[in-house]
Design a protein around this nucleic acid. Structure first.
Length: 248
DNA sequence: GGCCAGGCCCCAG
DNA sequence: CTGGGGCATGGC
């Protein structure tokens, strides 16, 4: 039975909603609070979909392991890493927050958005603001909440989001192109939205960590080397580098 | 103080 | 198309 690694999957930089306390992971999803203390708690249609339980991760890991010792090591150490199926709008706003930033502070900003514009679903627990709720935020307000130069991007993307339309039907390359027409979404953020919001495994986000990894371990190669599992390879390599398990 | 963090925009060449 | 400066903020 496939065991999801909650730590790696929920706290590894795919999403910023979860907090871990005494081994219990909790978040507000779809307006409801969810708490998980082990992989067996992943039950029901919503969580099964969220954790992408129907995909054959074993086959993907076995293939990636053949590509390089670094990946072999990574998948062996952490067999339970899944790519979540998250809401595209939420992912879009989240990765606007991510640019030139670190995971800890991205989480803090995520929390600020929830508390400032979301709905309190239980005492002290807030949902992520809907598009409608977030549309009430002004740039000035966001600046005072320490969103920095991302403030303008958030206001603009919330306003223009409807323009994206049925991205699901487009090829990854076309969808990427359309995402990048929004202000504040460049190549890297677009790729993150494609992987984490649209589950496009042929996207390969290249951030500062990945640049180092590719330079050190896969010189003269790009994401296509890991096809058809680019996104999973990326997530393994990102986490390995970012947690200091790789020397770059 | 300088450098860096899941970068992007804008402007030179 | 490529390179580099500017941009907000906080941790180290």
């Amino acid at each position: 039975m496939e065991q999801v690694d909650l730590q790696a999957t929920l706290m590894g930089g795919q999403c910023f909603a979860w907090e871990e306390k005494d081994g219990v992971y909790s978040a507000v999803l779809k307006g409801k609070q969810v708490s998980l203390s082990c992989a067996e708690d992943i039950q029901g249609p919503f969580l099964s979909d969220y954790f992408d339980m129907s995909f054959d991760y074993k086959a993907a890991r076995e293939y990636l392991a053949t590509l390089s010792p670094v990946l072999d090591q990574a998948v062996t150490t952490c067999p339970g890493l899944h790519i979540l199926r998250q809401d595209p709008y939420l992912v879009t706003i989240n990765f606007l927050l991510s640019q030139n930033n670190n995971i800890k502070r991205i989480k803090a900003l995520y929390d600020t958005l929830c508390r400032s514009y979301g709905t309190e679903v239980s005492t002290g627990r807030f949902s992520f603001p809907t598009r409608d709720q977030l549309s009430k935020a002004t740039e000035k307000e966001l600046l005072s909440l320490k969103f920095g130069y991302r403030s303008g991007y958030i206001v603009s993307v919330v306003r223009e989001y409807g323009r994206l339309g049925g991205l699901e039907k487009l090829s990854t390359a076309k969808a990427r192109e359309r995402l990048m027409t929004l202000r504040g979404i460049g190549p890297k953020v677009a790729d993150c939205i494609l992987v984490f919001g649209y589950h496009r495994w042929d996207a390969f986000p290249m951030d500062t960590w990945m640049r180092k990894v590719m330079c050190s371990y896969f010189p003269n190669k790009d994401g296509s080397y890991f096809a058809p599992y680019q996104a999973l390879a990326q997530q393994y390599l990102f986490q390995s580098a970012q947690s200091g398990r790789l020397v770059c």
